[in-house]
Design a protein around this nucleic acid. Structure first.
Lengths: 201, 201, 201, 201
DNA sequence: CATGAATGAGCGTTCATTCAT
DNA sequence: TATGAATGAACGCTCATTCAT
């Protein structure tokens, strides 16, 4: 008889995970275009052919990496939404962004490297644009709820901060003071709220 | 003879400039790796071989593009330095960054796309890191001079804003409210100074 | 025990037949080289590995298909030989050729597609050449017996007709008037015989 | 300055012709699918890359071979049409077919090998079907003009003969008595005409 | 200065075949 | 008997680079 179904599934899962992990590591280090299938296979200790048992193409491998990591973003947004005050929602959103950044820094490095290239992956650009618009809208809403006098502009700035900090962190993860910067952002970015609260005491 | 030499030099310069311009356009559109020498030569209306009369390799062409555009940054910094107050120096630096961003948005798009890849160009990563460190130090100094209570962190944040806004702009240049955002940054990012000034009146 | 062995043999036979059938269908549709083992296995609903339990290689699978279908030809020739007059033997041979063509049109399509390639299968070319020579000789003999004035040339022509008609039929099986063409061939190809017979009445 | 335009064109022409010639030879020997680009390049004494300076793909190389050889067929048909009697037109068409067969036997071998495979070249199947229909119609017309009692069926048979003889010849060009067979076809295939003519004397 | 024919290494991908289970 | 994960060689093709002219 054949190998048991369970064993097969286990083999498949571990191979697939190994490929995804290795590809993400190399993509994020050298960039998508400069990472060859050969590099991935050798680094994972498998044959090039095996990779195609799991992913139909290099593009699909990239898509799978994105699919896997994008669910984090949704979850993080959902958590932010549950904050009880606008200020808390903003804080949750900012801290959540940096939490998933830390957890998955290779992915974000890859993502930031790919963002400027049109046509790397057909659906990817559209997906990214959608995600971006959603973040901007959410930030705007939170800032408006918090009583800001120009929530659109402040949302743009806050979004830029998150993106900018994320990239600076990802470029030098060991040296960047991510937590301190996060605290400072929270502190600085709720002036109206903070001031109101403080005044209320 | 002398005139002939001068004419030659002029032709060389214009050919070189044409290649640089064309390459920058294509690199920024499709990314460095997805732009072939053939594409550049065809788009510039020259032969592939000629390109190698001006640049020893594709890498050197990229290096030349960076060298050309990086001088802008230096000039912009020099201008910032001449502001008469810390607040003005900060403002000049921020506005200068966005001015050169607008002037050379293709380059910045290319640069942001390449930043995450190690080994695209040997010297480039080092150069970029140096430039980055310099910006951070300058910002820190300005913010310290302005009397900020945590200039290092604020410098990190201001730098992140500049980078973040620049990328968002470069992704949608026609729709991004760059000037309004710039004003808002200036306004928001000198709270201590502003408050002090205001209080002094 | 005995029954188990018999059952095993029966399963083997049916699996083998299924593979042969599926392979023939796909080979004839897409050509031998453009049909992968994977396609055959999937289409037959078995694993790729199993196929190698029955056939040592793709080439051997092809050889088995040929072996299976070539016996038809022998049988058909035997039947022709039993005709009581030269004219009847010719008619039987022609009609027999078209009968096995109809019965096994996929095989003939495959065979005609492969015939021009050397080295597809080592033995195949030799086998084909032998078969071809035999047909030519038999036709020549029949035509000589029928009193033709140039049996060699007429045999070449009759053979060409059979092959040509077969291919045209196989290319458009639903539209080709095979029976009418067969009648016409019989009619036209025994003029001397026919005329003699008719005159004798 | 560059090489002269004339020299360049000459180089291009001879390289292109060499590739076409080599590819046709190998395609016809081993079949399209079993002939690799590497084989062609090595056999032609050029690099694999160079081939792509002249043909965008293996498929286009095949298409170019077909385009080159198909014009012969048109010319041959035009010549047949100019015969002064139906019998002469038939003779011209038959002899013309065998003339271009001899002239370009490699091409016809390739063509016969490819005919049974759907989807080798997108446009090819359609083109072939069109050509086939045209031949059949022309033959039918000639035979009707010659006063045949069943021109459709006789056209099918004559067409089959031409195709069948062509393939038998192409399989053993050195041994096949093509001219004698051609004479015999002409002789046998105009019985009504011939008989009429003879009777008239 | 300028051309473009030519190269060769490497790319992403396919596929017949093997083998542990 | 039967599976399917895994291999490795070969495939069609791209592209930065060279060089004779």
């Amino acid at each position: 008889m054949a190998r048991s179904a369970a064993l097969n599934q286990q083999m498949r899962d571990s191979s697939r995970a190994l490929i995804l992990e290795t590809a993400l590591k190399l993509f994020s280090e050298h960039g998508y275009d400069r990472t060859s299938i050969k590099m991935i296979a050798e680094s994972a200790g498998i044959s090039q052919g095996l990779l195609y048992n799991y992913f139909a193409s290099k593009d699909e491998l990239l898509a799978a990496i994105f699919a896997q990591s994008m669910s984090d973003v949704q979850a993080s947004f959902a958590m932010a939404e549950e904050g009880s005050t606008p200020a808390e929602r903003i804080e949750r959103l900012v801290r959540g962004a940096f939490t998933i950044l830390r957890k998955n820094q290779q992915f974000w490095r890859l993502s930031y490297g790919l963002r400027m290239q049109q046509g790397v992956l057909a659906g990817l650009a559209k997906q990214t644009r959608k995600s971006t618009a959603m973040i901007r809208q959410t930030l705007t809403r939170y800032l408006r709820d918090a009583g800001g006098d120009n929530p659109e502009l402040d949302a743009a700035i806050l979004f830029a901060i998150i993106d900018g900090v994320s990239q600076h962190y990802v470029l030098e993860p060991t040296r960047y003071p991510l937590d301190a910067v996060a605290d400072r952002i929270i502190q600085r970015f709720q002036p109206a709220v903070a001031r109101t609260k403080r005044a209320a005491r």
